[in-house]
């Protein structure tokens, strides 16, 4: 579904992502893991189009979208749920959900909001509240629901667990599993490599702007180099 070939992205003279290639098959959950500053978020933003690709090609369902504007990519079904949630704090919860469906035909929106509120009851409860008054976990739920309102064909999830309490993190990975079971294609960026690998079929390990390792998530999970660098000791205990 998504193919990224030799992608290079730079901020001024600094190349944050260098000749990175990865692919996401339809229906798969693929993750980009690695330490802070490895270029994972930058790669994701290049797929969304909010940062231009310096070199390389991005193909979505075989079409070259490297130069396509961010809003057209949303219309194509490439939807990112950004790091830090970026909920519209001064707008109501419902308006946030409506904005999630900005690119969709208007008649479908009300029914979609109903479905989303049924899945996340807290959003129905707080429907008229300003999004900025929600707790961090609730805001993450809103950000996920808002992203799903766009009916993504490819969902880009950037650090969904960052800065959240362990209980909420567990909830979020449950949602990811649920989406996966429903056939949702997901590209996941996470520093929490253990959790990310547990839900992924395939993963890429990034370091200093490059992909240094890739493979099926299971084999990475048992790779001694990955264990020592990213997973720590606790991997030996059953999960």
């Amino acid at each position: 579904m998504l193919e990224v070939h030799d992608l290079t992205v730079s901020y001024g003279p600094i190349e944050a992502v260098r000749e990175v290639s990865f692919r996401v098959e339809a229906g798969a959950v693929v993750s980009l893991v690695g330490p802070n500053g490895a270029g994972k978020t930058t790669a994701l933003n290049a797929v969304s189009g909010v940062i231009p690709a310096r070199r390389g090609r991005i193909l979505f369902e075989g079409r070259d979208i490297t130069r396509m504007s961010p809003h057209q990519r949303v219309s194509e079904g490439i939807v990112q749920i950004p790091e830090g949630r970026l909920v519209l704090a001064g707008m109501t919860v419902r308006e946030n959900l409506e904005m999630g469906a900005y690119r969709r035909p208007r008649p479908e929106i009300a029914a979609s909001i109903d479905r989303m509120e049924a899945r996340f009851p807290i959003l129905r409860e707080r429907s008229g509240a300003l999004a900025g008054t929600l707790s961090g976990g609730e805001q993450q739920m809103l950000a996920i629901a808002r992203g799903l309102m766009a009916k993504p064909r490819l969902l880009l999830l950037d650090e969904p667990s960052l800065g959240l309490a362990p209980l909420i993190v567990r909830l979020i990975f449950e949602i990811i599993r649920e989406l996966q079971a429903g056939g949702q294609t997901i590209l996941l960026v996470e520093q929490n490599a253990r959790q990310a690998l547990a839900v992924s079929s395939h993963a890429y390990v990034m370091e200093n702007g490059k992909v240094v390792l890739e493979g099926p998530a299971e084999s990475l999970t048992s790779d001694p180099a990955v264990i020592s660098s990213y997973l720590g000791q606790a991997i030996s205990s059953p999960t």
């Binding site: 969304s48 949303v74 950004p82 909920v87 519209l88 707008m91 900005y102 766009a150």
Partner: peptide
């Protein structure tokens, strides 16, 4: 209105607006 809400979205956060599909 839909466009009015898009204006408020851009006012709130330009990057979020872009990711939601607003032609900023």
């Amino acid at each position: 209105s839909r466009t009015g809400k898009a204006i408020r979205t851009v006012a709130e956060n330009e990057r979020a607006a872009m990711l939601l599909g607003v032609n900023v």
